[in-house]
Design a protein around this nucleic acid. Structure first.
Length: 346
DNA sequence: TAAGCGTGGCT
DNA sequence: TAGCCAAGCTT
């Protein structure tokens, strides 16, 4: 790297040659659609590009703008988010769309502060949308930027990384700069075995010169992940037009898998709870099979109980769902996994 | 402030 | 292959 050129100039030149083509990005020199930028940033929170890409395409085909999302049925939105995880993101997307429609004339606000006030937009997303969609100078810090900057400057700790990022962020093209950092972090400056031979910033990188690339960023120690035990209840009945229906509930709006359709479960406890809190007094059969599912902060070991329900009404507040259409129910992965294990789903 | 909150791709 | 990890936010 030419020592007289800034890191930002060098990185932007690299980006002009190597930028990934992604469905939420506009062609060079074109301002992208703020709605698509916002949606992509929310989908990409803690989620990989490979996972997001097809989900983004399907989403914008169904809800192409703020107005359509603000008017959407929330149950449809939650079902469309199924499998992406962190379901508060979907709830907040709808809340924010309504706020944008009501308070901002249907257009995303174009300042970092106003964006930050919307539900689901934190420091990172507000800065990213302001910079990428509106050309604002904003300091965008995600895990990629943290990794690249901490290595460049051997900066340990978030305050030091923020100071360094502030100093590096250019006044012009701050959005491209942020995306360049992310592309670099994804393709070159990876957590393990970074490809420093290909890095345009290698000569300027303090960690590289010291041979300690993988020592940055400094990560806090991980805590052990406990195991909890529970039971999933599969209650089925004959459908009116033939076939089978299964009882689905909606989970409470807050907390784990909040607002999502679900199979009924009992308590999640340290020891196997068996048939505790079954949704009906039925003749339950415990299957000789368990389902294991890892959440962020604990692992769930699930027993599977199945029963038949002959009465017409549902035993609890719930809905009967055709088993043949279960894929359209939008079940979180843990329940989709259980349904598959129970064998009622192809 | 630290804990709660999901999932799938990648190595 | 079993961890590791990701374009974080909320309370």
């Amino acid at each position: 790297m030419d020592a007289k050129r800034s890191i930002a100039e060098t990185l932007l030149d690299w980006y002009d040659r190597h930028a990934r083509t992604l469905p939420w990005r506009a062609p060079p020199g074109v301002r992208p659609d703020p709605y698509r930028v916002w949606l992509s940033e929310v989908m990409l929170q803690q989620t990989t590009v490979a996972t997001v890409r097809p989900r983004f395409e399907a989403w914008v085909a169904r809800w192409p703008d703020v107005a359509s999302l603000a008017a959407a049925d929330e149950a449809d939105v939650m079902a469309a988010w199924a499998g992406l995880g962190y379901y508060a993101r979907a709830r907040n997307l709808v809340r924010a769309a309504k706020a944008i429609a009501a308070d901002h004339g249907g257009k995303l606000p174009d300042t970092e502060d106003a964006l930050r006030a919307l539900p689901g937009l934190g420091d990172y997303t507000a800065a990213a949308v302001a910079a990428i969609a509106f050309g604002r100078r904003a300091v965008v810090i995600d895990a990629n930027v943290e990794r690249v900057v901490s290595r460049l400057c051997r900066a340990a700790g978030k305050p030091a990384v923020r100071r360094a990022a502030e100093a590096l962020t250019p006044d012009q093209r701050a959005g491209d700069f942020a995306q360049a950092m992310m592309d670099l972090g994804s393709a070159i400056c990876s957590p393990k075995r970074p490809k420093c031979l290909l890095c345009p910033l290698a000569d300027a990188c303090a960690a590289h010169r010291a041979g300690e690339e993988e020592a940055f960023p400094v990560k806090p120690a991980k805590k052990p992940r406990p195991t909890r035990h529970g039971t999933i209840f599969w209650l089925e009945r004959a459908a009116a037009g033939g076939g089978l229906e299964v009882l689905l509930v909606r989970r409470p709006a807050k907390g784990l898998l909040g607002g999502m359709r679900a199979l009924p479960t009992g308590p999640w406890t340290e020891t196997q709870p068996g048939l505790a809190e079954a949704p009906a007094a039925a003749d339950w059969t415990m299957l000789n099979q368990q389902v294991s599912h890892g959440f962020t902060h604990f692992t769930l070991e699930l027993a599977l109980a199945v029963a038949r329900w002959d009465a017409h009404s549902a035993p609890i507040a719930a809905e009967w769902w055709r088993v043949d259409d279960l894929a359209a129910a939008g079940l979180p992965t843990v329940f989709a996994k259980a349904a598959k294990a129970i064998g009622r789903v192809r």
